[in-house]
Design a protein around this nucleic acid. Structure first.
Lengths: 246, 246
DNA sequence: ATCTTCCTTTTTGTATACCAGAATGAGACA
DNA sequence: TGTCTCATTCTGGTATACAAAAAGGAAGAT
């Protein structure tokens, strides 16, 4: 039961398990993540749990609070706006680089995934389509040839997966990926930017549309902030100034 | 002085200490980071050390290897190229947003730092100038108003500090920061991009100039990647490895 | 002399137990 | 009703132990 699959360490297994549970909505936003409980749940000691929680915190899926339990992150509309904003810069860059640097092999790998995505979408397999969509972006990042970009892509991948999990109409996504693939294939470095931005924008619209419908009930506090400013959570985050001293 | 009272946890203290030692070159690239030894060195148990190492690995300052010791990261020219590439997208976005979203208060805070940088540079205080330069970028990121951008900026900050530590002529940097500040102040969203790119480029030139070639081999893969050259000259001598450990 | 193979050492990964201190939550008190 | 106090709950950290994996070296084979 615990020896599920190809995982090299307990920490990794735990991290993967928790991440999936959070993204799949099994762990509700705002719910407590208590180390001892998780340790018993997953049949390991507190050590791997601690490391997993730290990792997931860095991926933005859990909200740690000093000296107390962590919680499953509650994404606000402003969080999502920030994410889309960042994505619009990073993805453009990634695709432009990929269009320049792809090779025969990497391109055919990408084509396979695009095809798979289209098939899944056509026959209504949301889970498969989502996986293909995530794979597509991951492979494009790899093709970009920039190791740091891959790293950042990995950091953002959980959030991206979360975004994808928020809307179920994946057919547009698959088609747009197909168009993006074509642009990469013909090395259309100049034209790919607008395609990427359109892709993000249309994806964004579907998020909002879908999001407003499933308005989750406040787990604790109805922290509704229509403004751009974040009200709560000013405590964590590295203190910017602090060490000034001089 | 160095260890100001602002450290909240052992892990944080350890992380800061190790990070500084690595960036300042006290810990040589490639040297071993053994948990038990570090624990004794820094007078703590293995747990904070482990967490610090994990953190620093995510910041790209240490290279972890499964089931063995970590090492201080050896930056290759390709690593630096990747970093500059990412930075050129990241910083442009950051500054464009900052130019749009700054307020009276944040602007004056920024001005203070710019002034400080100029003063330090003028009187040849490299350490102070470097700190001011790092602060400048950090504050601009904050002004951008995008929490995720701040997060990514934090992740990249160690690498940026490392870059800064590689060249000692900080007067250009301070002056360019002053120019960037002006552009932000006058909300010159259209014109700031070229300024940022120039800033990065000139900084990059000084890096190369100062940076003696110390390469390592890129991951074993035949570079089917003709566009891009990262000047591989021969060498890759049996690197110094952990000659010292002192 | 160089390449394998085997064995010892080193070091991490994980478990377990325990403690101090901070945050929480509930009850006492004004 | 509000706030103060205090027990409880958790985390952050220490210490210790042990299995498993990698590294390093030595013996043996070619």
């Amino acid at each position: 039961m615990k020896t599920s699959a190809s995982a090299r360490s307990e920490t990794e297994r735990v991290t993967t398990a928790l991440r999936d549970e959070i993204i799949d909505g099994i762990r509700k936003p705002g719910s407590r993540l208590v180390e001892r409980d998780l340790a018993m749940d997953l049949g390991v000691s507190r050590v791997p749990i601690r490391e997993a929680l730290k990792q997931l915190a860095s991926e933005g899926l859990v909200t740690p609070r000093p000296n107390t339990w962590s919680t499953v992150r509650e994404f606000t509309t402003s969080d999502i706006a920030d994410l889309n904003e960042v994505l619009s810069a990073f993805e453009v860059m990634t695709f432009e680089l990929a269009a320049q640097r792809h090779t025969r092999e990497t391109l055919s790998e990408l084509e396979t995934v695009v095809r798979r995505g289209l098939e899944f979408a056509e026959r209504g397999d949301a889970i498969g389509a989502r996986r293909a969509a995530a794979d597509f972006h991951e492979i494009v990042t790899k093709i970009s040839g920039n190791a740091l970009l891959v790293e950042i892509g990995g950091l953002l991948s959980s959030r991206k997966r979360w975004l994808l999990s928020q809307h179920d109409d994946l057919s547009h996504v698959a088609e747009e990926h197909s168009g993006l693939f074509d642009a990469i294939a013909r090395r259309d470095v100049g034209g790919i930017k607008s395609l990427v931005l359109e892709h993000l924008e249309s994806s964004q619209k579907r998020q909002i549309q879908h999001n407003e419908l499933k308005h989750r009930e406040p787990p604790a506090e109805p922290a509704d902030d229509p403004e751009r400013f974040r009200d709560d959570d000013e405590s964590d985050f590295e203190n910017i100034e602090e060490t000034a001293a001089s």
